[in-house]
Design a protein around this nucleic acid. Sequence first.
DNA 1: AGAGGTTACGGGCAGCGTAAGGATC
DNA 2: GATCCTTACGCTGCCCGTAACCTCT
Lengths: 298, 298
Amino acid sequence: MKRAGSSIDCKALETILLIARLGSFSEVARTLNTTQPAISLRIAEAETTLGVSFFDRSGRRAVLTPEGRLACDYAERILELRGELVDRIGDPAARRGTLRLGVSETVVHTWLPSFLEKFNTIYPRLTLELDVDISTELRTFLLQGQIDLAFMVGPVGVPALQERPLSCFPVDFIASPTLDLPKEKIEIADLKRHPFLTFARGTLPYAEVADLLKRSSGGPPRIFASASMATLIRMALDGIGIAVIPPAIVQDDIANGRLVRLQSSHRLRDLAFVAAWTETSEKFLISRIADLAAESAQ
Amino acid sequence: MKRAGSSIDCKALETILLIARLGSFSEVARTLNTTQPAISLRIAEAETTLGVSFFDRSGRRAVLTPEGRLACDYAERILELRGELVDRIGDPAARRGTLRLGVSETVVHTWLPSFLEKFNTIYPRLTLELDVDISTELRTFLLQGQIDLAFMVGPVGVPALQERPLSCFPVDFIASPTLDLPKEKIEIADLKRHPFLTFARGTLPYAEVADLLKRSSGGPPRIFASASMATLIRMALDGIGIAVIPPAIVQDDIANGRLVRLQSSHRLRDLAFVAAWTETSEKFLISRIADLAAESAQ
DNA sequence: AGAGGTTACGGGCAGCGTAAGGATC
DNA sequence: GATCCTTACGCTGCCCGTAACCTCT
Protein backbone atom coordinates (compact mmCIF):
# COMPACT_ATOMS: atom_id res chain seq x y z
CA MET A 1 0.00 0.00 0.00
CA LYS A 2 1.46 3.24 -1.17
CA ARG A 3 -0.22 5.62 1.23
CA ALA A 4 -0.63 4.18 4.67
CA GLY A 5 -2.21 7.33 6.07
CA SER A 6 -5.61 5.81 5.62
CA SER A 7 -5.30 3.58 8.66
CA ILE A 8 -5.79 4.11 12.36
CA ASP A 9 -3.15 5.76 14.50
CA CYS A 10 -1.55 4.81 17.83
CA LYS A 11 -2.86 8.02 19.34
CA ALA A 12 -6.39 7.09 18.34
CA LEU A 13 -5.99 3.63 19.84
CA GLU A 14 -4.75 5.09 23.12
CA THR A 15 -7.70 7.44 23.18
CA ILE A 16 -10.23 4.69 22.51
CA LEU A 17 -8.76 2.60 25.29
CA LEU A 18 -8.87 5.49 27.73
CA ILE A 19 -12.47 6.32 26.91
CA ALA A 20 -13.39 2.68 27.38
CA ARG A 21 -11.75 2.71 30.80
CA LEU A 22 -13.03 6.06 32.02
CA GLY A 23 -16.39 5.99 30.27
CA SER A 24 -16.38 9.62 29.25
CA PHE A 25 -14.82 11.81 26.58
CA SER A 26 -14.43 14.79 28.88
CA GLU A 27 -12.77 12.71 31.58
CA VAL A 28 -10.21 11.55 29.04
CA ALA A 29 -9.68 15.12 27.87
CA ARG A 30 -8.81 16.11 31.42
CA THR A 31 -6.49 13.14 31.82
CA LEU A 32 -4.67 13.93 28.59
CA ASN A 33 -4.46 17.65 29.29
CA THR A 34 -6.49 18.61 26.29
CA THR A 35 -10.03 19.70 25.50
CA GLN A 36 -13.08 17.57 25.04
CA PRO A 37 -13.71 18.60 21.40
CA ALA A 38 -10.18 17.46 20.56
CA ILE A 39 -11.05 13.99 21.84
CA SER A 40 -14.37 14.03 19.99
CA LEU A 41 -12.62 14.88 16.76
CA ARG A 42 -9.91 12.32 17.25
CA ILE A 43 -12.47 9.54 17.69
CA ALA A 44 -14.72 10.82 14.93
CA GLU A 45 -11.85 10.78 12.47
CA ALA A 46 -10.87 7.24 13.41
CA GLU A 47 -14.48 6.15 13.07
CA THR A 48 -14.75 7.74 9.65
CA THR A 49 -11.60 6.19 8.25
CA LEU A 50 -12.74 2.75 9.40
CA GLY A 51 -16.39 3.29 8.66
CA VAL A 52 -17.59 2.08 12.06
CA SER A 53 -18.67 3.47 15.44
CA PHE A 54 -16.63 2.68 18.52
CA PHE A 55 -18.94 4.17 21.13
CA ASP A 56 -22.61 4.57 21.80
CA ARG A 57 -22.96 8.16 22.99
CA SER A 58 -26.69 8.10 23.53
CA GLY A 59 -26.50 7.43 27.24
CA ARG A 60 -24.86 9.45 29.94
CA ARG A 61 -21.67 7.42 29.72
CA ALA A 62 -19.90 6.46 26.53
CA VAL A 63 -20.30 2.71 26.09
CA LEU A 64 -18.38 0.49 23.68
CA THR A 65 -20.03 -0.96 20.60
CA PRO A 66 -19.05 -4.51 19.62
CA GLU A 67 -16.54 -3.02 17.15
CA GLY A 68 -15.23 -0.80 19.91
CA ARG A 69 -14.71 -3.77 22.17
CA LEU A 70 -12.74 -5.54 19.48
CA ALA A 71 -10.73 -2.40 18.84
CA CYS A 72 -9.89 -2.23 22.53
CA ASP A 73 -8.64 -5.81 22.52
CA TYR A 74 -6.29 -4.99 19.69
CA ALA A 75 -5.34 -1.60 21.09
CA GLU A 76 -4.25 -3.20 24.33
CA ARG A 77 -2.03 -5.68 22.55
CA ILE A 78 -0.64 -3.08 20.16
CA LEU A 79 0.17 -0.54 22.82
CA GLU A 80 1.63 -3.16 25.10
CA LEU A 81 3.96 -4.24 22.33
CA ARG A 82 4.98 -0.65 21.74
CA GLY A 83 5.60 -0.15 25.44
CA GLU A 84 7.75 -3.25 25.52
CA LEU A 85 9.71 -2.04 22.51
CA VAL A 86 10.41 1.31 24.10
CA ASP A 87 11.34 -0.40 27.34
CA ARG A 88 13.78 -2.75 25.66
CA ILE A 89 15.62 -0.42 23.33
CA GLY A 90 14.81 3.07 24.54
CA ASP A 91 17.38 5.10 26.44
CA PRO A 92 15.82 6.01 29.84
CA ALA A 93 17.59 9.37 29.70
CA ALA A 94 15.70 10.18 26.50
CA ARG A 95 12.27 9.40 27.86
CA ARG A 96 9.94 12.35 28.00
CA GLY A 97 6.52 12.66 29.48
CA THR A 98 4.84 13.12 32.80
CA LEU A 99 4.47 10.43 35.41
CA ARG A 100 1.78 11.07 37.97
CA LEU A 101 2.93 9.63 41.27
CA GLY A 102 0.88 9.37 44.43
CA VAL A 103 2.72 8.98 47.74
CA SER A 104 1.84 8.54 51.38
CA GLU A 105 3.20 11.25 53.59
CA THR A 106 5.23 8.69 55.52
CA VAL A 107 7.12 7.94 52.35
CA VAL A 108 7.75 11.63 51.75
CA HIS A 109 9.37 11.89 55.16
CA THR A 110 11.52 8.79 54.81
CA TRP A 111 12.91 7.45 51.56
CA LEU A 112 11.25 9.65 48.94
CA PRO A 113 14.24 12.03 48.66
CA SER A 114 16.52 9.07 47.98
CA PHE A 115 14.06 7.82 45.37
CA LEU A 116 13.77 11.20 43.69
CA GLU A 117 17.52 11.48 43.40
CA LYS A 118 17.79 8.07 41.71
CA PHE A 119 14.79 8.85 39.53
CA ASN A 120 16.19 12.14 38.30
CA THR A 121 19.52 10.55 37.49
CA ILE A 122 17.98 7.79 35.39
CA TYR A 123 15.03 9.69 33.90
CA PRO A 124 16.22 13.30 33.76
CA ARG A 125 13.59 14.31 31.18
CA LEU A 126 10.64 12.57 32.78
CA THR A 127 8.67 15.06 34.83
CA LEU A 128 7.02 13.90 38.00
CA GLU A 129 3.64 15.07 39.22
CA LEU A 130 3.46 14.37 42.92
CA ASP A 131 0.21 13.86 44.81
CA VAL A 132 0.58 13.41 48.53
CA ASP A 133 -2.46 11.85 50.18
CA ILE A 134 -3.58 8.99 52.37
CA SER A 135 -3.50 5.49 50.92
CA THR A 136 -7.25 5.03 50.56
CA GLU A 137 -7.43 8.18 48.44
CA LEU A 138 -4.45 7.08 46.39
CA ARG A 139 -6.20 3.78 45.68
CA THR A 140 -9.20 5.69 44.35
CA PHE A 141 -6.98 7.91 42.22
CA LEU A 142 -5.28 4.85 40.76
CA LEU A 143 -8.56 3.19 39.88
CA GLN A 144 -9.84 6.40 38.32
CA GLY A 145 -6.70 6.74 36.25
CA GLN A 146 -5.79 10.03 37.88
CA ILE A 147 -2.35 8.80 38.88
CA ASP A 148 -0.09 6.22 37.26
CA LEU A 149 1.75 4.85 40.28
CA ALA A 150 1.41 5.07 44.06
CA PHE A 151 3.67 4.36 47.00
CA MET A 152 1.13 3.53 49.65
CA VAL A 153 0.19 1.23 52.48
CA GLY A 154 -0.66 -2.26 51.36
CA PRO A 155 -1.60 -4.86 50.64
CA VAL A 156 -4.15 -3.26 48.35
CA GLY A 157 -5.81 -6.49 47.36
CA VAL A 158 -7.63 -5.13 44.32
CA PRO A 159 -7.39 -7.37 41.25
CA ALA A 160 -7.19 -4.38 38.92
CA LEU A 161 -4.02 -3.17 40.60
CA GLN A 162 -0.52 -4.56 40.36
CA GLU A 163 1.53 -4.26 43.49
CA ARG A 164 5.07 -4.77 44.62
CA PRO A 165 6.34 -4.72 48.24
CA LEU A 166 8.59 -1.83 49.18
CA SER A 167 9.39 -1.19 52.81
CA CYS A 168 7.94 -2.13 56.16
CA PHE A 169 7.71 0.54 58.84
CA PRO A 170 7.04 -0.41 62.46
CA VAL A 171 4.59 1.95 64.15
CA ASP A 172 5.20 3.03 67.69
CA PHE A 173 4.01 5.32 70.45
CA ILE A 174 6.20 8.40 70.40
CA ALA A 175 6.06 11.38 72.70
CA SER A 176 7.97 14.31 74.03
CA PRO A 177 10.11 13.43 77.09
CA THR A 178 8.36 16.31 78.89
CA LEU A 179 5.28 14.10 79.19
CA ASP A 180 5.25 12.36 82.52
CA LEU A 181 5.18 8.70 81.57
CA PRO A 182 6.72 5.52 82.99
CA LYS A 183 9.97 4.39 81.44
CA GLU A 184 8.98 0.77 80.84
CA LYS A 185 5.98 -1.45 80.19
CA ILE A 186 3.54 1.37 79.80
CA GLU A 187 -0.07 0.17 79.81
CA ILE A 188 -2.79 1.50 77.55
CA ALA A 189 -4.46 3.06 80.56
CA ASP A 190 -1.36 5.20 81.17
CA LEU A 191 -1.21 6.26 77.57
CA LYS A 192 -4.86 7.20 77.55
CA ARG A 193 -4.25 10.07 79.91
CA HIS A 194 -2.98 11.95 76.87
CA PRO A 195 -4.55 12.47 73.47
CA PHE A 196 -3.32 10.30 70.64
CA LEU A 197 -1.87 12.08 67.65
CA THR A 198 -2.00 10.17 64.42
CA PHE A 199 -2.83 10.28 60.72
CA ALA A 200 -6.16 11.30 59.27
CA ARG A 201 -9.32 9.24 59.41
CA GLY A 202 -9.21 6.48 56.88
CA THR A 203 -5.61 5.57 57.53
CA LEU A 204 -4.50 2.28 58.98
CA PRO A 205 -2.85 3.79 62.10
CA TYR A 206 -5.97 5.82 62.83
CA ALA A 207 -8.15 2.72 62.57
CA GLU A 208 -5.84 0.79 64.81
CA VAL A 209 -5.72 3.45 67.48
CA ALA A 210 -9.48 3.83 67.37
CA ASP A 211 -9.93 0.08 67.67
CA LEU A 212 -7.44 -0.14 70.51
CA LEU A 213 -9.20 2.56 72.51
CA LYS A 214 -12.62 1.17 71.83
CA ARG A 215 -11.65 -2.18 73.34
CA SER A 216 -9.87 -0.73 76.36
CA SER A 217 -11.69 0.45 79.41
CA GLY A 218 -11.54 3.93 80.78
CA GLY A 219 -12.69 7.38 79.85
CA PRO A 220 -13.52 8.69 76.40
CA PRO A 221 -10.68 8.29 73.98
CA ARG A 222 -9.24 11.38 72.43
CA ILE A 223 -7.68 11.15 68.99
CA PHE A 224 -6.21 14.16 67.27
CA ALA A 225 -6.14 13.17 63.63
CA SER A 226 -4.10 15.38 61.38
CA ALA A 227 -3.88 15.32 57.61
CA SER A 228 -0.70 17.28 57.96
CA MET A 229 2.37 15.43 59.08
CA ALA A 230 4.15 18.65 60.04
CA THR A 231 1.31 19.60 62.37
CA LEU A 232 1.35 16.13 63.88
CA ILE A 233 5.04 16.33 64.65
CA ARG A 234 4.72 19.88 65.94
CA MET A 235 2.04 18.78 68.38
CA ALA A 236 4.09 15.81 69.53
CA LEU A 237 7.14 18.04 70.08
CA ASP A 238 4.99 20.46 72.07
CA GLY A 239 3.88 17.67 74.38
CA ILE A 240 0.25 17.88 73.38
CA GLY A 241 -0.12 14.13 73.11
CA ILE A 242 1.29 10.78 72.07
CA ALA A 243 2.07 10.32 68.42
CA VAL A 244 1.22 6.97 66.85
CA ILE A 245 3.48 7.02 63.83
CA PRO A 246 6.46 5.17 62.41
CA PRO A 247 9.58 6.28 64.30
CA ALA A 248 11.40 6.44 61.00
CA ILE A 249 9.61 9.68 60.23
CA VAL A 250 11.01 11.46 63.24
CA GLN A 251 14.34 9.70 63.60
CA ASP A 252 16.18 13.02 63.87
CA ASP A 253 14.01 14.20 66.73
CA ILE A 254 14.48 10.85 68.46
CA ALA A 255 18.24 10.97 67.97
CA ASN A 256 18.60 14.35 69.63
CA GLY A 257 16.16 13.51 72.41
CA ARG A 258 13.29 15.83 71.56
CA LEU A 259 11.07 12.77 71.15
CA VAL A 260 11.25 9.31 72.68
CA ARG A 261 9.84 5.91 71.74
CA LEU A 262 7.64 4.73 74.57
CA GLN A 263 8.21 1.23 75.89
CA SER A 264 4.61 0.19 75.57
CA SER A 265 3.28 -3.25 76.35
CA HIS A 266 1.18 -3.06 73.19
CA ARG A 267 2.55 -3.87 69.77
CA LEU A 268 1.17 -1.96 66.84
CA ARG A 269 0.92 -3.41 63.37
CA ASP A 270 3.61 -2.47 60.89
CA LEU A 271 2.89 -0.24 57.94
CA ALA A 272 3.71 -2.35 54.89
CA PHE A 273 4.32 -0.06 51.96
CA VAL A 274 3.84 -1.18 48.37
CA ALA A 275 4.10 0.31 44.92
CA ALA A 276 0.77 -0.07 43.13
CA TRP A 277 -0.27 0.64 39.56
CA THR A 278 -2.83 -0.30 36.94
CA GLU A 279 -2.14 -2.50 33.94
CA THR A 280 -1.54 0.04 31.19
CA SER A 281 0.65 0.19 28.15
CA GLU A 282 3.26 1.93 30.29
CA LYS A 283 3.52 -0.99 32.67
CA PHE A 284 7.09 -1.70 31.63
CA LEU A 285 8.30 1.76 32.54
CA ILE A 286 6.22 1.84 35.67
CA SER A 287 7.43 -1.48 37.00
CA ARG A 288 11.01 -0.30 36.45
CA ILE A 289 10.24 2.76 38.51
CA ALA A 290 8.67 0.57 41.16
CA ASP A 291 11.92 -1.40 41.25
CA LEU A 292 13.77 1.86 41.73
CA ALA A 293 11.51 2.69 44.65
CA ALA A 294 12.16 -0.72 46.19
CA GLU A 295 15.89 -0.01 46.06
CA SER A 296 15.44 3.36 47.73
CA ALA A 297 13.25 1.86 50.42
CA GLN A 298 15.90 -0.80 51.13
CA MET B 1 1.39 8.82 31.60
CA LYS B 2 -0.22 12.11 30.92
CA ARG B 3 1.37 12.99 27.63
CA ALA B 4 1.87 10.00 25.43
CA GLY B 5 3.36 12.03 22.58
CA SER B 6 6.81 11.09 23.74
CA SER B 7 6.62 7.62 22.27
CA ILE B 8 7.13 6.21 18.82
CA ASP B 9 4.44 6.39 16.19
CA CYS B 10 2.95 3.80 13.85
CA LYS B 11 4.12 5.83 10.88
CA ALA B 12 7.67 5.72 12.16
CA LEU B 13 7.44 1.96 12.65
CA GLU B 14 6.18 1.49 9.10
CA THR B 15 9.01 3.59 7.80
CA ILE B 16 11.65 1.70 9.76
CA LEU B 17 10.31 -1.58 8.46
CA LEU B 18 10.31 -0.35 4.88
CA ILE B 19 13.86 0.95 5.10
CA ALA B 20 14.96 -2.37 6.56
CA ARG B 21 13.35 -4.17 3.63
CA LEU B 22 14.48 -1.86 0.85
CA GLY B 23 17.82 -0.88 2.32
CA SER B 24 17.65 2.77 1.34
CA PHE B 25 15.97 5.95 2.54
CA SER B 26 15.45 7.32 -0.96
CA GLU B 27 13.94 4.07 -2.19
CA VAL B 28 11.41 4.24 0.62
CA ALA B 29 10.68 7.87 -0.18
CA ARG B 30 9.82 6.87 -3.75
CA THR B 31 7.64 4.01 -2.51
CA LEU B 32 5.73 6.24 -0.12
CA ASN B 33 5.34 9.09 -2.63
CA THR B 34 7.32 11.51 -0.55
CA THR B 35 10.80 13.02 -0.47
CA GLN B 36 13.97 11.58 0.96
CA PRO B 37 14.48 14.36 3.56
CA ALA B 38 11.02 13.64 4.91
CA ILE B 39 12.05 10.05 5.57
CA SER B 40 15.35 11.17 7.08
CA LEU B 41 13.53 13.48 9.45
CA ARG B 42 10.95 10.90 10.38
CA ILE B 43 13.62 8.41 11.38
CA ALA B 44 15.80 11.03 13.05
CA GLU B 45 12.89 12.12 15.22
CA ALA B 46 12.09 8.56 16.25
CA GLU B 47 15.75 7.96 17.05
CA THR B 48 15.91 11.10 19.16
CA THR B 49 12.81 10.34 21.20
CA LEU B 50 14.11 6.85 21.96
CA GLY B 51 17.74 7.85 22.26
CA VAL B 52 19.03 5.12 19.95
CA SER B 53 20.08 4.63 16.33
CA PHE B 54 18.09 2.30 14.10
CA PHE B 55 20.36 2.36 11.06
CA ASP B 56 24.02 2.53 10.22
CA ARG B 57 24.21 5.01 7.36
CA SER B 58 27.95 4.85 6.85
CA GLY B 59 27.83 2.39 3.97
CA ARG B 60 26.10 2.63 0.63
CA ARG B 61 23.04 0.87 1.98
CA ALA B 62 21.28 1.60 5.25
CA VAL B 63 21.84 -1.36 7.55
CA LEU B 64 19.99 -2.12 10.78
CA THR B 65 21.68 -1.73 14.14
CA PRO B 66 20.84 -4.31 16.84
CA GLU B 67 18.25 -1.89 18.22
CA GLY B 68 16.87 -1.44 14.74
CA ARG B 69 16.51 -5.18 14.32
CA LEU B 70 14.59 -5.40 17.58
CA ALA B 71 12.43 -2.46 16.55
CA CYS B 72 11.64 -4.25 13.29
CA ASP B 73 10.54 -7.36 15.16
CA TYR B 74 8.12 -5.31 17.20
CA ALA B 75 7.05 -3.17 14.27
CA GLU B 76 6.06 -6.26 12.33
CA ARG B 77 3.94 -7.57 15.17
CA ILE B 78 2.39 -4.19 15.90
CA LEU B 79 1.51 -3.41 12.31
CA GLU B 80 0.20 -6.89 11.72
CA LEU B 81 -2.13 -6.49 14.69
CA ARG B 82 -3.31 -3.18 13.36
CA GLY B 83 -3.89 -4.68 9.93
CA GLU B 84 -5.91 -7.48 11.49
CA LEU B 85 -7.96 -4.97 13.47
CA VAL B 86 -8.79 -2.94 10.39
CA ASP B 87 -9.60 -6.11 8.49
CA ARG B 88 -11.96 -7.37 11.18
CA ILE B 89 -13.93 -4.27 12.00
CA GLY B 90 -13.25 -1.85 9.16
CA ASP B 91 -15.88 -1.24 6.50
CA PRO B 92 -14.33 -2.14 3.12
CA ALA B 93 -16.23 0.73 1.52
CA ALA B 94 -14.43 3.15 3.81
CA ARG B 95 -10.95 1.93 3.00
CA ARG B 96 -8.75 4.50 1.34
CA GLY B 97 -5.34 4.14 -0.13
CA THR B 98 -3.64 2.87 -3.22
CA LEU B 99 -3.11 -0.76 -4.06
CA ARG B 100 -0.41 -1.42 -6.61
CA LEU B 101 -1.46 -4.41 -8.65
CA GLY B 102 0.64 -6.19 -11.25
CA VAL B 103 -1.13 -8.33 -13.86
CA SER B 104 -0.17 -10.55 -16.73
CA GLU B 105 -1.61 -9.48 -20.04
CA THR B 106 -3.47 -12.75 -20.32
CA VAL B 107 -5.40 -11.83 -17.21
CA VAL B 108 -6.20 -8.41 -18.63
CA HIS B 109 -7.78 -10.04 -21.66
CA THR B 110 -9.79 -12.59 -19.70
CA TRP B 111 -11.20 -12.09 -16.21
CA LEU B 112 -9.66 -8.77 -15.16
CA PRO B 113 -12.76 -6.73 -16.12
CA SER B 114 -14.92 -8.98 -13.98
CA PHE B 115 -12.45 -8.59 -11.11
CA LEU B 116 -12.33 -4.81 -11.45
CA GLU B 117 -16.09 -4.60 -11.30
CA LYS B 118 -16.23 -6.64 -8.08
CA PHE B 119 -13.31 -4.70 -6.66
CA ASN B 120 -14.87 -1.32 -7.31
CA THR B 121 -18.12 -2.41 -5.75
CA ILE B 122 -16.49 -3.60 -2.54
CA TYR B 123 -13.65 -1.07 -2.28
CA PRO B 124 -14.99 2.04 -4.02
CA ARG B 125 -12.43 4.32 -2.35
CA LEU B 126 -9.41 2.16 -2.85
CA THR B 127 -7.51 3.31 -5.93
CA LEU B 128 -5.79 0.74 -8.05
CA GLU B 129 -2.44 1.26 -9.74
CA LEU B 130 -2.19 -1.26 -12.53
CA ASP B 131 1.10 -2.53 -13.92
CA VAL B 132 0.82 -4.87 -16.87
CA ASP B 133 3.94 -6.90 -17.49
CA ILE B 134 5.23 -10.42 -17.88
CA SER B 135 5.28 -12.66 -14.81
CA THR B 136 9.04 -12.69 -14.31
CA GLU B 137 9.05 -8.90 -14.16
CA LEU B 138 6.09 -8.91 -11.79
CA ARG B 139 7.97 -11.26 -9.49
CA THR B 140 10.87 -8.82 -9.39
CA PHE B 141 8.53 -5.91 -8.71
CA LEU B 142 6.94 -7.85 -5.85
CA LEU B 143 10.28 -8.65 -4.27
CA GLN B 144 11.40 -5.04 -4.63
CA GLY B 145 8.20 -3.82 -3.00
CA GLN B 146 7.16 -1.91 -6.10
CA ILE B 147 3.81 -3.65 -6.26
CA ASP B 148 1.65 -5.10 -3.50
CA LEU B 149 -0.08 -7.91 -5.36
CA ALA B 150 0.30 -9.68 -8.68
CA PHE B 151 -1.89 -11.92 -10.82
CA MET B 152 0.73 -13.90 -12.65
CA VAL B 153 1.84 -17.28 -13.88
CA GLY B 154 2.83 -19.62 -11.09
CA PRO B 155 3.85 -21.41 -9.13
CA VAL B 156 6.31 -18.75 -8.07
CA GLY B 157 8.11 -20.91 -5.55
CA VAL B 158 9.82 -18.08 -3.69
CA PRO B 159 9.65 -18.39 0.11
CA ALA B 160 9.25 -14.64 0.54
CA LEU B 161 6.06 -14.65 -1.48
CA GLN B 162 2.62 -15.87 -0.53
CA GLU B 163 0.59 -17.35 -3.34
CA ARG B 164 -2.92 -18.52 -4.00
CA PRO B 165 -4.13 -20.41 -7.10
CA LEU B 166 -6.50 -18.54 -9.38
CA SER B 167 -7.26 -19.93 -12.79
CA CYS B 168 -5.70 -22.42 -15.17
CA PHE B 169 -5.55 -21.56 -18.86
CA PRO B 170 -4.74 -24.23 -21.42
CA VAL B 171 -2.36 -23.04 -24.12
CA ASP B 172 -2.95 -24.01 -27.68
CA PHE B 173 -1.81 -23.45 -31.23
CA ILE B 174 -4.14 -20.93 -32.81
CA ALA B 175 -4.07 -19.59 -36.33
CA SER B 176 -6.10 -17.87 -38.98
CA PRO B 177 -8.14 -20.32 -41.10
CA THR B 178 -6.47 -18.75 -44.15
CA LEU B 179 -3.30 -20.62 -43.25
CA ASP B 180 -3.12 -23.83 -45.18
CA LEU B 181 -2.92 -26.48 -42.48
CA PRO B 182 -4.30 -30.00 -42.02
CA LYS B 183 -7.51 -30.30 -40.09
CA GLU B 184 -6.39 -32.99 -37.66
CA LYS B 185 -3.31 -34.40 -35.96
CA ILE B 186 -0.99 -31.69 -37.10
CA GLU B 187 2.67 -32.53 -36.49
CA ILE B 188 5.30 -30.08 -35.29
CA ALA B 189 6.95 -30.28 -38.68
CA ASP B 190 3.78 -28.92 -40.31
CA LEU B 191 3.51 -26.14 -37.81
CA LYS B 192 7.10 -25.15 -38.32
CA ARG B 193 6.41 -23.99 -41.81
CA HIS B 194 5.01 -20.86 -40.21
CA PRO B 195 6.51 -18.56 -37.61
CA PHE B 196 5.31 -18.98 -34.05
CA LEU B 197 3.72 -15.96 -32.45
CA THR B 198 3.88 -15.86 -28.70
CA PHE B 199 4.63 -13.79 -25.63
CA ALA B 200 7.87 -11.99 -24.97
CA ARG B 201 11.14 -13.68 -24.03
CA GLY B 202 11.08 -14.67 -20.39
CA THR B 203 7.53 -15.98 -20.46
CA LEU B 204 6.63 -19.59 -19.95
CA PRO B 205 4.96 -20.03 -23.39
CA TYR B 206 8.02 -18.54 -25.09
CA ALA B 207 10.31 -20.92 -23.24
CA GLU B 208 8.16 -23.86 -24.11
CA VAL B 209 7.96 -23.01 -27.78
CA ALA B 210 11.69 -22.44 -27.91
CA ASP B 211 12.30 -25.76 -26.20
CA LEU B 212 9.89 -27.55 -28.48
CA LEU B 213 11.54 -26.20 -31.58
CA LYS B 214 15.03 -26.88 -30.34
CA ARG B 215 14.22 -30.56 -29.86
CA SER B 216 12.41 -31.00 -33.14
CA SER B 217 14.17 -31.59 -36.40
CA GLY B 218 13.96 -29.35 -39.43
CA GLY B 219 14.91 -25.86 -40.45
CA PRO B 220 15.66 -22.92 -38.23
CA PRO B 221 12.78 -22.11 -35.90
CA ARG B 222 11.20 -18.73 -36.19
CA ILE B 223 9.58 -17.18 -33.15
CA PHE B 224 7.95 -13.80 -33.24
CA ALA B 225 7.85 -12.72 -29.66
CA SER B 226 5.70 -9.74 -28.85
CA ALA B 227 5.41 -7.82 -25.62
CA SER B 228 2.14 -6.48 -26.93
CA MET B 229 -0.81 -8.79 -26.88
CA ALA B 230 -2.69 -6.66 -29.40
CA THR B 231 0.15 -6.93 -31.89
CA LEU B 232 0.27 -10.67 -31.35
CA ILE B 233 -3.42 -11.10 -32.09
CA ARG B 234 -3.20 -8.77 -35.05
CA MET B 235 -0.43 -10.87 -36.58
CA ALA B 236 -2.35 -14.06 -35.97
CA LEU B 237 -5.47 -12.61 -37.58
CA ASP B 238 -3.41 -11.50 -40.56
CA GLY B 239 -2.14 -15.04 -41.04
CA ILE B 240 1.45 -14.16 -40.33
CA GLY B 241 1.96 -17.19 -38.13
CA ILE B 242 0.69 -19.56 -35.49
CA ALA B 243 -0.14 -18.06 -32.14
CA VAL B 244 0.83 -20.03 -29.05
CA ILE B 245 -1.50 -18.49 -26.49
CA PRO B 246 -4.43 -19.46 -24.30
CA PRO B 247 -7.55 -19.64 -26.49
CA ALA B 248 -9.44 -17.86 -23.73
CA ILE B 249 -7.78 -14.62 -24.79
CA VAL B 250 -9.19 -14.76 -28.30
CA GLN B 251 -12.43 -16.58 -27.66
CA ASP B 252 -14.42 -13.98 -29.60
CA ASP B 253 -12.25 -14.40 -32.67
CA ILE B 254 -12.54 -18.18 -32.39
CA ALA B 255 -16.30 -17.98 -31.98
CA ASN B 256 -16.79 -16.01 -35.17
CA GLY B 257 -14.26 -18.05 -37.11
CA ARG B 258 -11.51 -15.53 -37.63
CA LEU B 259 -9.16 -17.83 -35.70
CA VAL B 260 -9.19 -21.59 -35.19
CA ARG B 261 -7.66 -23.89 -32.61
CA LEU B 262 -5.36 -26.29 -34.39
CA GLN B 263 -5.74 -29.98 -33.65
CA SER B 264 -2.10 -30.53 -32.89
CA SER B 265 -0.60 -33.81 -31.76
CA HIS B 266 1.43 -31.90 -29.19
CA ARG B 267 0.04 -30.85 -25.86
CA LEU B 268 1.30 -27.61 -24.36
CA ARG B 269 1.52 -26.99 -20.66
CA ASP B 270 -1.27 -25.01 -19.03
CA LEU B 271 -0.70 -21.52 -17.70
CA ALA B 272 -1.47 -21.74 -14.00
CA PHE B 273 -2.25 -18.28 -12.71
CA VAL B 274 -1.78 -17.36 -9.09
CA ALA B 275 -2.17 -14.32 -6.93
CA ALA B 276 1.16 -13.55 -5.24
CA TRP B 277 2.12 -11.04 -2.57
CA THR B 278 4.68 -10.35 0.12
CA GLU B 279 4.06 -10.70 3.86
CA THR B 280 3.31 -7.14 4.86
CA SER B 281 1.06 -5.55 7.43
CA GLU B 282 -1.59 -5.30 4.72
CA LYS B 283 -1.69 -9.04 4.19
CA PHE B 284 -5.24 -9.27 5.49
CA LEU B 285 -6.59 -6.83 2.93
CA ILE B 286 -4.46 -8.31 0.19
CA SER B 287 -5.52 -11.88 0.80
CA ARG B 288 -9.16 -10.75 0.69
CA ILE B 289 -8.50 -9.17 -2.67
CA ALA B 290 -6.79 -12.35 -3.81
CA ASP B 291 -9.96 -14.23 -2.83
CA LEU B 292 -11.93 -11.78 -4.92
CA ALA B 293 -9.66 -12.47 -7.86
CA ALA B 294 -10.15 -16.21 -7.39
CA GLU B 295 -13.91 -15.71 -7.62
CA SER B 296 -13.58 -13.69 -10.80
CA ALA B 297 -11.28 -16.28 -12.33
CA GLN B 298 -13.86 -18.98 -11.55
C1' DA C 1 31.49 12.34 -10.01
C1' DG C 2 27.39 10.31 -8.63
C1' DA C 3 24.40 8.36 -5.33
C1' DG C 4 22.69 8.82 -0.81
C1' DG C 5 21.94 11.24 3.71
C1' DT C 6 21.81 15.53 6.46
C1' DT C 7 20.77 20.30 7.40
C1' DA C 8 18.30 24.71 6.60
C1' DC C 9 14.30 27.23 5.41
C1' DG C 10 9.58 28.43 3.85
C1' DG C 11 4.75 27.05 3.17
C1' DG C 12 0.48 24.27 3.72
C1' DC C 13 -2.43 21.62 6.38
C1' DA C 14 -3.80 18.88 10.19
C1' DG C 15 -5.14 19.22 14.83
C1' DC C 16 -5.93 22.03 18.75
C1' DG C 17 -8.50 25.50 21.67
C1' DT C 18 -12.43 28.68 22.06
C1' DA C 19 -17.16 29.27 21.65
C1' DA C 20 -21.82 28.08 20.59
C1' DG C 21 -25.45 24.47 19.67
C1' DG C 22 -28.02 20.21 20.70
C1' DA C 23 -29.26 16.00 23.28
C1' DT C 24 -30.05 13.27 27.35
C1' DC C 25 -31.09 12.41 32.21
C1' DG D 1 -30.80 22.66 34.62
C1' DA D 2 -26.70 20.09 34.44
C1' DT D 3 -23.73 17.30 32.00
C1' DC D 4 -21.92 15.58 27.96
C1' DC D 5 -21.04 15.35 23.02
C1' DT D 6 -21.06 17.78 18.53
C1' DT D 7 -20.14 21.44 15.27
C1' DA D 8 -17.98 25.70 13.62
C1' DC D 9 -14.09 28.71 13.28
C1' DG D 10 -9.55 30.83 13.82
C1' DC D 11 -5.03 29.83 14.86
C1' DT D 12 -0.72 27.54 16.03
C1' DG D 13 2.67 24.26 15.31
C1' DC D 14 4.22 20.30 13.00
C1' DC D 15 5.44 18.06 8.92
C1' DC D 16 6.54 18.16 4.34
C1' DG D 17 8.87 19.83 0.02
C1' DT D 18 12.71 22.59 -2.10
C1' DA D 19 17.39 23.47 -2.12
C1' DA D 20 22.10 23.46 -0.74
C1' DC D 21 25.70 20.91 1.60
C1' DC D 22 28.26 16.91 3.09
C1' DT D 23 30.04 12.09 2.84
C1' DC D 24 31.08 7.85 1.04
C1' DT D 25 32.12 4.68 -3.10
